[in-house]
Design a protein around this nucleic acid. Sequence first.
DNA 1: AAGATCATGTAAAGAGTTACATGATTCG
DNA 2: CGAATCATGTAACTCTTTACATGATCTT
Lengths: 196, 196
Amino acid sequence: MSLPHAILTALLEKPSSGLELTRRFDRSIGYFWPATHQQIYRELGKLEQAGFIRALPSERPARGQKKEFEVLPAGRAELTAWASGEQDTKPVRNALVLRLRAAAVVGRAGLDDELRRHLTLHQRQLAEYEEIDSRDFGAVADPEDRLRRLVLRAGIGLETFWVQWLEEALAEVADMDAEADGEAGSGADTGVRAGE
Amino acid sequence: MSLPHAILTALLEKPSSGLELTRRFDRSIGYFWPATHQQIYRELGKLEQAGFIRALPSERPARGQKKEFEVLPAGRAELTAWASGEQDTKPVRNALVLRLRAAAVVGRAGLDDELRRHLTLHQRQLAEYEEIDSRDFGAVADPEDRLRRLVLRAGIGLETFWVQWLEEALAEVADMDAEADGEAGSGADTGVRAGE
DNA sequence: AAGATCATGTAAAGAGTTACATGATTCG
DNA sequence: CGAATCATGTAACTCTTTACATGATCTT
C-alpha cells in the first residue's frame, strides 16, 4: 500500500495534475516506486473519494482539461501515520539473477550479451543519479534535502553495486568459456550445456 | 513471466512436489524470486497443461497425496529459449526509501526505529548468505557451481550495501536530530516537522 | 483543416497476496 | 481417537501492466 503515500508525498512537495505527477514519477520518486499514468489516475480518484486530496477549483472541469490536486489535512495526517509505522518489506525479485541459475542448468547461450546489456543500463542509470547529485546537492544544509540526498545515495550505491557485480560476472563467464574451449578444443561454443 | 521459468529451473535441478518446491523457494531460488505455495500450485497446473512438465506416476493420485513433477523435453526447450533471450527488467520498488522522502515532508517521527529494524533484517540475511557461501562453496570448479556462486555473491553484495547504507542513514538522522535539539533547545523532539 | 501533443480516462488481463477448505498421515 | 502436521487445492482480492478511447489545445 505504498503508491497512495508516494502520491501524497509528491503532492505535498508540489500540487500537480495527473500527467504532471506521471512525469515526476518518471524522474525522482519513480526511481524507487515507479507508476504508470493509469495507476496514478486511479489512485488520485481513490484519494479524492477518501477526502485526502481535492481538485483545485477550475473554470471548466472536463475530460481533456488539466485538473490539479492538493493534499487536504486528512491526507497529511494519513501520510504522517503511515510514515511513523512499520513498513512491510516487499520481496525482491530479480529475473537476471534467476537467469543465471537457469544457465547453470540449460547452458550459457546468450548469457554474455544479456549481462552486457544490463551493464550498460546500470551504467547509464548511475550516470543519471550522479548528475542529479552534483546538480542538486552542492552544499546541503536543511534536513529535508539531507533526507532526499540519502535517497539519492541509495540509488547511487545500488547502481554501483550492480555495475561491479556485472563486471565480475562477465569476467567469470568469459573465464568459463575459455576453459570450455580449452578442454573441448572447439571454437565459438557459447551454448555450452552445463549440467547435462 | 519469470515464475514458470524459476519453477522449471528448480524442477530440472531436482524433480519435486508442490510443497517441496515451496520449501526450496523459501531457501535458494526464492531469495531472488519468492513464491507462495498458492502461486506454485497454480503455476504447476499451467505448466502441466502446457506439456512442459508431468506428474510422476503414483499409486494413488488424490488430494492430500504427494505428487511429484518432472520436466519434459518441451519444458527444457522452453526454459532454454527463455534463458537465451532478453529479460525485461522489472522496476524496483522500495518502500523504505519512499518513507525517507515522506519523512522529508511530514517529519522524522519513528524513522530511527524503522531504519534500525531494517538494519537488523539485512544483517541477518547477510549472515545467512555468508553461511551458505562458506558451507556450499569451498573450492569451486565446475561451471554450474560457479554460476550459482555468482548468484549468491549478488545476494551478499546487495545485503552488504544495504547494511552500509542503513548505518550511514542512521548516523545522518542522529546528526539531524542533534542539530534540531541544539537549535530549538528542546529535549527529545524526534517528531521534528521539517518542511512546514 | 490536419496532425501532433497534451491530458484524462476505461477495460481487461496478468501477477501476487491473503484467507480459507479439505484430505492423508503420523504420533501420543 | 484426537491433535498436529503434511500436502494439495479454491476463492477472492489487490496491485500492476498493456491496450485502447476520447477530448482539448497548439502548430502549420
